[in-house]
Amino acid sequence: MTPASAFLLGVRALLPMLLGVAPFGVIYGVVALQSGIPPLAAFLMSSLVFAGSAQFLLAQLVGAGAPALLMVGAVGLINLRHALYSASVAPVLAQLPRRWKLLLAYLLTDEAYAAAIPHLLAEPRSPQAHWILFGAGFALWFGWQLSTLVGVLVGARLPADLGLDFALPLTFIAIVVPLIDSRARLVAALVAGAVAVVLVALPYKTGLFAAALAGLAAGAFMQGRKPA
């Protein structure tokens, strides 16, 4: 595999995700403007933070006038799951120069990880595997910048009844459901979902974090009970 073909493999693996990501990016642009964020700052958040659901939350918190420290903390909590992706791809990237590690860490999103990981874990490992992750990461980055720009520029003129904000839950369903291949993983999802619904009224979405922890604990407990 050449670097170019590995890059294109990553781009192709990511492309289906853009069907969910593009409407979500447009909606983010609309929500950011509605929260009183100027268009340029709304667009620049997409490259400076570059994390879909966290950007959505951050825009809403700015609109609600939340304290800055709390906003940074909320973004950190919601993005903590990326530590998993970091740990998961770390062995694949171990021999690369630092500039590659910095670049691929910046591009490490839910979608890029989900699209690239089956190729990254394939044996024997391709010496060009990092180009696959770069292709997936770049395709998502480009699509995200473009769609948030569209949202900032024309989003307010889109009909609201299309329900485009449904794209985020749909994208996450497309990522999560195929991951559920054991009873422990199913329990983790059900507990996290149920707790998130029960605690939804907690301020600044802190219920999300409690729900994720509860799901994590339930899944790990179920896995621990399973005979080896």
């Binding site: 839910d110 979902g193 899944g219």
Partner: peptide, 27 residues
């Protein structure tokens, strides 16, 4: 234990974000 728990992180976190979007209408 950290390695064993890792696979549950995206499942729990993404489901926690998604479930309220599906189960609630205007709160």
């Amino acid at each position: 234990w950290f390695i064993r728990w890792l696979p549950f992180v995206p499942i729990a976190a993404l489901t926690a974000i998604t479930a309220p979007e599906l189960a609630l209408v205007a709160g």
